[in-house]
Design a protein around this nucleic acid. Structure first.
Lengths: 170, 170
DNA sequence: TTGGTCATGTAATTCGTTACATGATTGA
DNA sequence: TCAATCATGTAACGAATTACATGACCAA
């Protein structure tokens, strides 16, 4: 049910159309909770049926602007305070590391070296994103900055770990 | 298709039954690629149909022991060397952080404080696991140790980050 | 006028979870 | 004998991905 709450969360900031939300997923939420266009439109319909959001404006090209209802905000707060994250984290990157033993040491080191590069690139991208955003001091902005900082630290950690790991394989 | 490769990977170490594999998923792979009993048995049937594994022994209680075939090992190596991890990582923990702004500062700090505790516990658990395992020097063991080290570093990073984040919220 | 963007929706399929259903073997 | 563990399989449902399908608006 997390997609549902991701949509409620984005709509808590400001009203938006499915198309707007899709772009939020492709940019700010891409590294946290990716979602596809089809998934977003389907879920928006369900949320509207459930009364958690409502169409408050219609624009050109059939654009529908959704707004969070009081019930929607209550549900979002309930999710944040009364339920615990329980989703199983899956990491294909790590799954592969687990089985690098079936490759030659050179191949295994190649995989880890690639990972170092990817981590550096991701770190760079986040750094640029960080610099390009005007972090005014409001609540949403603070949380956005905190989330981005996580990404920076995560990629730094992963790079250092992969560098260490290369040395372990022989 | 990662579950498929996780099974091939485990079978590359030694032949095993569905029940054996289930336990591997519940222990060593739990934090990397969780899978349920039903998923494992279903996928094993498909893998056998595809000729990537085969039943090489039958035991009491209908136990079927599967062994990796040459085609299966080739597929595993192909996956590791010729394809790239592309699965979108989802983090419900981080998704929540992104929306902590809708809570009061106290509530938000409460969430992060809880996260600090969880990270410490996970770190402790991994540390004990690390100490309880006899890491002989073979290839599989080296990769297992590398994967575990990732978990240790990850949880340490997350704890430090969450401690920093608590201070950001006011 | 035409290419890019805005804008929505559905269908088919696969992947993952929960629940149901059954039964043999073993050790205390 | 009885509880725990070993052992497998399927059904129903929900979540996620990919593909299909359509069309309005706008700026060059």
């Amino acid at each position: 049910m997390s997609l549902r709450h991701a949509l409620l969360g984005l709509l808590s900031e400001r009203p938006a159309s499915g198309y707007d939300l899709l772009k939020s997923f492709d940019t700010s939420l891409a590294n946290v909770w990716p979602a596809t266009q089809s998934q977003i439109y389907t879920e928006l319909s369900k949320l509207a049926d459930a009364g958690l959001i409502s169409v408050t404006a219609e624009g050109p090209r059939g654009r529908k602007e959704y707004t969070l209802t009081d019930a929607g905000l209550a549900e979002l707060r309930h999710w944040l305070t009364e339920t615990k994250p329980q989703r199983n984290t899956r990491s294909e990157v790590l799954l592969r590391v687990f089985f690098l033993g079936v490759l030659t040491p050179e191949q295994a080191r190649g995989y880890l070296t690639e990972l170092i590069k990817l981590s550096e690139q991701a770190h760079e991208n986040l750094r640029h994103l960080d610099e390009s955003i005007d972090w005014d001091g409001d609540n949403l902005s603070v949380c956005g900055r905190i989330t981005l900082e996580y990404g920076l630290r995560f990629n730094a950690m992963r790079r250092e770990w992969a560098e260490w790991a290369v040395g372990q394989i022989r």
